[in-house]
Design a protein around this nucleic acid. Sequence first.
DNA 1: AACATTTATGACAGCGCTAACATTCCGCTG
DNA 2: CAGCGGAATGTTAGCGCTGTCATAAATGTT
Lengths: 341, 341
Amino acid sequence: MRKVTLADVAAKVGVSAITVSRALRSPEKVSKTLQRKIKKAIADLGYVPDPAARALASGRTNVIGVLIPSVTNNVFSDVMRGMYEAIEPTTFDLQLGNTRYSPLMEEDLLKVFLSQKPAGLVITGIDQSKTARTMLQSATCPIVQIMETGPNPIDMMIGFSHYDAAAAATTHLIDAGSRFPAFVGARMDPRTQRRFAGFKDTCERAGVFSRERLITTPEPSTVTLGASLFANLISQQPEIDAVLCNNDDLALGILFEAQRRHMAIPEELMICGFNDLEMMAVAEPPVTSVRTHRHEMGRRSIEMLVRQIENPDAEASKIIDLGFDVISRRSTARRGPRLGS
Amino acid sequence: MRKVTLADVAAKVGVSAITVSRALRSPEKVSKTLQRKIKKAIADLGYVPDPAARALASGRTNVIGVLIPSVTNNVFSDVMRGMYEAIEPTTFDLQLGNTRYSPLMEEDLLKVFLSQKPAGLVITGIDQSKTARTMLQSATCPIVQIMETGPNPIDMMIGFSHYDAAAAATTHLIDAGSRFPAFVGARMDPRTQRRFAGFKDTCERAGVFSRERLITTPEPSTVTLGASLFANLISQQPEIDAVLCNNDDLALGILFEAQRRHMAIPEELMICGFNDLEMMAVAEPPVTSVRTHRHEMGRRSIEMLVRQIENPDAEASKIIDLGFDVISRRSTARRGPRLGS
DNA sequence: AACATTTATGACAGCGCTAACATTCCGCTG
DNA sequence: CAGCGGAATGTTAGCGCTGTCATAAATGTT
């Protein structure tokens, strides 16, 4: 039982191989009658096209490469879910590359991906290395940068401003009465840095910034880490009355640690997360967070690519800012400045 | 600037294409001198092999296909992390397929994957459809089934017994004094069913089973869902003194809901999760859970495959039971039967 | 009716690489 | 020193498919 090839199908129907190929690739060029017969023969023989042969002959694949810095991070699983959802009704496949937050690995993976002549590429963030940018710029397929918007797009872009989002969250905390806000950050990647910048600038403008109320670590963020970072921070700086977290894992850890210390939330400590993972709304008390449109970002990034691939000259917006929303919940529901300050 | 091919490299060095091919594929067959020269030429020209051409010519790829039911579920992100870790030092690539818990999608994806002549396959669980099993059995590459162990392996297998794990957790609850244990389950896939069976049988043996204290839903599990399922359940069956959860998301939701209702944990309600996600240890109170070796499962599944691919006739254990551990924490730290019962 | 245009199919070559076999060259044995 | 074995390299062919151009048939046009 040898592999079934196009030629076998063609022989069975009594046409040439190329016609079968056409029936699959561009059915509108083949008569209805033949299409039906060919479809039947394919089913009967159990023919499955060989993607390698197709790629070699046509010089392109139906693979969309996706470069993300982490497969573990909850944020990216939401984005990926959106992508898988969008890819499903199409004929394209997704191929994931994990850069582990390393520009070097990003370059290597990019080289591998480009050698496969992908139909499109998704790449995370706007901080590619010079080499990576050059490779991307000379690529012949459409490219989307996700997670962030910024100047100098390589091709397309969908995301939001991390600076603005953090600034808005910080304003929310200050408006709620915080005079001693803190920032807790893990894995300070470029996006996190920009969030911190938004926090810092906003605090400075309100005259409430202190470098003492900042704790960061290069480790990847976890709930446990949030708890222990906060434990450190609060023992050094007991005056802290609000925390803006890099992300929701940390925020949840801080919530647990605060509960352990019997700190009243929000009365003694306000907590604000980032990303608005599902669990924040149901925590006790519910935790304020910055909602980012991760699922939509994933879905639309693929949709943008597919549209561009199938219709290269159509006019379509190439840069999409999805924005964000500060979702205010009980963990920051304090009014006015704290008593006695 | 045309694509650089093997022939270009060969021409530059002054040898034939096949020699360059060999220098890449099986360096031991090429003299040291040539190897050096060829390596240099490859670097100079920036040659990158074309995987499609290789696949077509050799009839195999260096792709390991992975079929999992969900890319979102925390459980699988841990497994995937282990896989990515194990694949990194090798020359193989991972290709993910998301079956969405559907045997039909599993079949389709399997067909696609097999058409690519993968170097190996990872497939989740032991409940493949008849068609899928037939396809797998006639595949020429090594295959690992993960997440579970059971009879009739297709090829290799790494996992643990969900029945035993749930039974052990249930025993733990009963030993801790539960007389009215409940089971909360979401997305009742086959593994979940077996966990429930372990719970049921153990309860029955102890004379504490009641179908009234069981709540399940086909929806995917989330923290929110845990909270609302528990709210339903406890209002119907207020006597419940312990809950075994399908997984940790649900357990966390139940913890939050119990806090909202000011139920003392573990005094009024014991909670036991499943999987022992990172956050369970740091929750307040820390939540008992069944630790499963997800990361190791992912890592070792790939290692098993790679070993088998590179050394097909070596004797190696083909079925590995990684076991589990009931990690007892404060959420089940009650001693003896409840007062007054 | 003669010709142009469109639609449907086919012939041929070649994508970049490697399997299989062939050749060359070397040192070594008896 | 003929003959042999093994290491290093080459020749040839072909993997399964699609791009390109050619051809044949159907339809429209004046």
